[in-house]
Simulated assay, not measured.
Amino acid sequence: MNETSTEVGRYPGVTVGSVAAFIQASVNITDNWSVDGGYRYQYMNNKIDDFVDYKIQKNIAQGTGTSADAVPGGETNYSVGLFNLGTVYRLTAESQVWANFSQGFDLPDPAKYYGQGTYDAADANGHYKLNNSINVADSKLSGIKTNSYEIGFRTEQDALSFQTAAYFSESDKSVKYNKTTLLIEDVDNKKRVYGAEALVSYWVTDNLQVGASGHYVVSELETDGQWDDLGAEEASASKASSWVGWYGSDLSLKVQSQTMFDYEDADENELVGYTVFDLLGSYELPVGSIGFGVQNLFDKDYTTAWGQRAQIFYAAHYDAAAYDYKGRGRTYTLNYQVKY
């Protein structure tokens, strides 16, 4: 039987409170042009408990000390105003263009920021004295404000459907993690993400449809006035998909592909892309329908994006193989459903 030897805390206790108020309005400038916008005010309060750095807790648990000063806790307050503005213009009954601006606010996890301290060696009584710390009073955790912009176009032309958009977002700060402690080291450098996406589908016949979509994305971090590729452990890779579908009165079949493209950051860390195919189908019965499918149709052997990111992020702790999370192999599915 296993017995608990000792317990140590990993993060300080945090109590989070938030209240927000918003107003949103929409107006039709003309029959074809509409504009909407709004404002949101948000107030947040964090209460952080006193906390002994977990490394010192481990030392005490192992018998190399008896007590330690706690990193002081306290309270932090945040208030922020956020705007959004959007417009849609109808070129024709089938086609539209749009543009949007929005602001967002995010607060990194305070439990992974506060409670860190550096200590002197244990004294003759086994007590660790705190000589420097990340505490609430001296180092308030910065919030992150993001401005996002988007423009797009969509149209429906008989058998053809097409939609595309370009976007740009910039955050005034970004989170930097210490890969050894896995705690937040700093919230400082600007980050920007921009790209374009598109989706197109076409009915070749009344029953046969083909389509494709793509998303090209660039993620960058500003360091010393220079923009570099965001680390592979955080960045999103570009993606694409395609499909061919047959839709009959009773039977529907669809073969689709999903592709993640390669990504390499400024430190030459890589995400290796892959493509998987799926077969999906359904058949209508007198009562209900049967759904069936084969996911990862060709039994592709690949490591998921998270598995690859984890190998980079946790490299200081264990061998990379421990985080080699493989994608699911060929998987068969069968279900029955009745709508009522």
Results as ranks from 00 to 15, higher is better:
Asn59Lys: 14
Val80Lys: 08
Phe292Met: 05
Gly248Asn: 10
Val71Glu: 04
Lys58Ser: 10
Gln337Ser: 11
Gly195Phe: 03
Leu107Phe: 05
Glu75Gly: 04
Phe313Cys: 02
Gly86Ala: 15
Gly195Tyr: 01
Leu253His: 04
Tyr114Thr: 11
Asn100Leu: 11
Pro286Ala: 10
Ala322Ser: 09
Gln24Trp: 05
Gln116Phe: 07
Thr76Met: 15
Gln163Ile: 07
Tyr89Trp: 11
Lys239Ser: 15
Tyr78Asp: 01
Ala315Tyr: 12
Ser79His: 13
Ala121Glu: 08
Gly293Leu: 00
Ala320Pro: 13
Asp324Glu: 13
Asp109Phe: 14
Asn178Arg: 07
Asn59Gln: 15
Gly291Ala: 01
Thr92Ala: 09
Asp250His: 09
Val80Gly: 07
Lys55Leu: 14
Ser174Asp: 06
Arg10Met: 12
Ser5His: 10
Ala322Val: 12
Asp138Met: 07
Leu130Ala: 13
Ser252Ala: 14
Pro72Leu: 01
Gln209Trp: 02
Ala198Gly: 07
Glu264Cys: 04
Gly9Pro: 03
Ala20Asn: 03
Tyr340Thr: 02
Thr303Arg: 07
Leu285Lys: 12
Glu233Phe: 07
Tyr302Val: 08
Lys145Cys: 08
Val8Phe: 02
Trp246Asp: 03
Lys112Cys: 06
Ala315Ile: 08
Tyr283Val: 13
Ala237Gly: 07
Val27Glu: 00
Asn131Val: 12
Ala165Ile: 02
Gln157Pro: 00
Arg309Pro: 06
Asp138Phe: 07
Gly214Val: 08
Phe292Trp: 06
Lys191Arg: 08
Leu183Cys: 01
Phe277Lys: 00
Gln337Met: 08
Thr87Gln: 11
Asn335His: 05
Phe261Gly: 10
Asn296Asp: 09
Lys239Cys: 11
Ser213Cys: 03
Gly248Glu: 10
Ala111Lys: 08
Val338Phe: 15
Ser257Ile: 03
Lys179Gln: 04
Ala316Asp: 14
Gly291Asn: 11
Val244Gly: 00
Asn207Phe: 13
Ser95Asp: 10
Gln163Gly: 05
Gly329Cys: 12
